[in-house]
Design a protein around this nucleic acid. Sequence first.
DNA 1: TGTTGTGAACGAGTTCACAGCG
DNA 2: CGCTGTGAACTCGTTCACAACA
Lengths: 208, 208
Amino acid sequence: MERPKFPDETIRRMPLYLRCLNRLIILGKDTLTSKELSEFLGVKPTKIRKDFSYFGDFGTRGVGYDLNNLVREIRNILNLDQEWKIAVAGISNVGCTILDHLEFNQPGFQITHAFDQDPELIGDTVRGVTVHDVTEIENQLSGEGIQLGLLAVPAIEARGVADSLVDAGVKGIINLAPIFIDLPEDVEVVQMDLSSELGRLVYHLTNS
Amino acid sequence: MERPKFPDETIRRMPLYLRCLNRLIILGKDTLTSKELSEFLGVKPTKIRKDFSYFGDFGTRGVGYDLNNLVREIRNILNLDQEWKIAVAGISNVGCTILDHLEFNQPGFQITHAFDQDPELIGDTVRGVTVHDVTEIENQLSGEGIQLGLLAVPAIEARGVADSLVDAGVKGIINLAPIFIDLPEDVEVVQMDLSSELGRLVYHLTNS
DNA sequence: TGTTGTGAACGAGTTCACAGCG
DNA sequence: CGCTGTGAACTCGTTCACAACA
């Protein structure tokens, strides 16, 4: 960890930048300014420049940024040059569809295991991955080096399943269940909560 | 808008509080302290007290907060006493399942319309709601007073569908598609992006 | 005593204004 | 001249320390 610490919000924007830059490269672009990028993403140019400046001078004054350099650097910062393996728990409801849908399957991520508690689903193959029973999490994952888990089970089961994932060595969990999960310090949990966002939306609509 | 402005982050936490408080009421509890709530939600007690203090003195020193008062007040602040109607676009993939799954169907929200572009789905009934073609959005929603939209279509179509929703009078959109949508000032957009969160997770795992 | 309520200090992130450079 | 890069000001949110009070 000799690398300077980047602000958390900057890190959060990196995947956005990356996705946009990749699209532009495919379209044959090779240089762009912070102003252009700003229009694609709705992020102010100064914020973009500040973000990019954290990892050194990648732009050329008067010209803009070299797309390929930028992509290489962001992938490097986010550590996407290695393949990150993901186990999905709760494949029936959200798990699989959300993955497809959010088209996050950019290079760098790979779904290797899927679990559910519905007997109907166990044994099925979803997206090329066989669905196992949630009670099998530890057995199946042990020694596989799975670092990430996507927790998409109902709230009541979320804590138990999260514990299983952690016991199996998972170090980072995205929790889609609307419940707080208390885990050891060395496990990172990111909460994605639709009702929080709905609440915020409704508040803004009535107060402005 | 005589009500004092609450910080955005406070508003975002309100639905979390609400959900937890409702559960506790069902369990027969009628009073709780900021410290107890803190343990349920992983939010520091001082933050909770600050949040609650924005809407006046609802606690009793030495005792804690009255659960029913609190719930009533939060529902009021979030404007959940009226019914908010939601149109879901992209029912096939995420739309419906995410709704079920995230069990956001707390009182205050109601899904009234569903749209998709897949001919296979059009005409089907999902959760008691008939699925219509996305091209029908304006026809179907006009005059219905739908305020909210859940945008769960692929990124390529997201902008077009968002425009339709706005033309039909929708004022708030939750965008699950991984693309920035530029809409008129008076329309509120909340972005929920899995890959941003995955990126953040991976960064933290490798840098700590 | 126990817990709320809150001004003040602190910290993180954004924006601004402009210096630096191709 | 145009666009990047950046210290400084500002804004927003969190935490702290402690006063207020049942």
